[in-house]
Design a binder for these strands. Sequence first.
DNA 1: CTCTATGCAAAACCTTTGCATAGAA
DNA 2: TTCTATGCAAAGGTTTTGCATAGAG
Lengths: 147, 147
Amino acid sequence: MKRTKNEKEAEVLEHYLTSRHLKHSKQRKIILRFFLNAGKHVSPDELYRMVQKEYPRIGYATIYRTLRLLCVSGLSRELKFQDGVARFEPQYGTAHHDHLICTKCGRLIEVMDPEIERLQEKLTKAHGFYPETHRMELYGICRRCKK
Amino acid sequence: MKRTKNEKEAEVLEHYLTSRHLKHSKQRKIILRFFLNAGKHVSPDELYRMVQKEYPRIGYATIYRTLRLLCVSGLSRELKFQDGVARFEPQYGTAHHDHLICTKCGRLIEVMDPEIERLQEKLTKAHGFYPETHRMELYGICRRCKK
DNA sequence: CTCTATGCAAAACCTTTGCATAGAA
DNA sequence: TTCTATGCAAAGGTTTTGCATAGAG
């Protein structure tokens, strides 16, 4: 259930703030809510516009600062695709995945292949690295655009 | 042999310029030379500084314009890692590869795993996409930094 | 009360663009 | 000559920062 899920994320944020003696401001709760309801991978600017409509007093700086906060508290991760624009997506309770992107229409599909994951780890270790994360983007033309 | 290799790339550029009725300027040759000798993945700024030392009259704009030219003529490809800085690497005569990056020291290793490549293509097709390119970055801690 | 967070505007980046002039073709 | 390329500076777009004030603890 959606509501419950967002509450869980609100809790994570609360806990993070409390543990660091940071403040539970209204803005942070508002921005978290918009961020979670925005769906996938918003840019700071997109998020700013959405929030603006209801809360015109909230500025860019707070959006940026809060997105960073969400990243360090584990609720968001930052993506950078080839267009260079920073995008953020919720990641709490979300399984790891990569992205398949249509170069014509921009359509974005989340993908995950355990076999690829396994080989990535193996390859990393083969070079003496301790694996941390990875990102993989597959670019192509989607079914609709191919026609 | 290095010299021969650079000559081959110079030829590619010449050919591209000629075919589009573009001009074979001194700056383009100079920047190509520095670009090829720079080693892997330079940022526009790094390239600018290198060129500056010998040719102080060459400006940022020309660096940027030439890097774009090198990309469209197939001599360079643009990379964007998590730090968001654009980097360019020579790609003529270079086999496709991905990157393994140390999150502590920034060390960068080129990697390629045919089995991963095969699975990436398969995964793309499984979603009805016609595969074009992909990018994969593996992040971890390298042997030296682990100690 | 104390001290962090906010809002605003300015600054800091990185990259692109307009325009007059240099220089290939 | 004709036109593209260059150099410079200004403009664009995105993200960060300084500072006075608001507001949470």
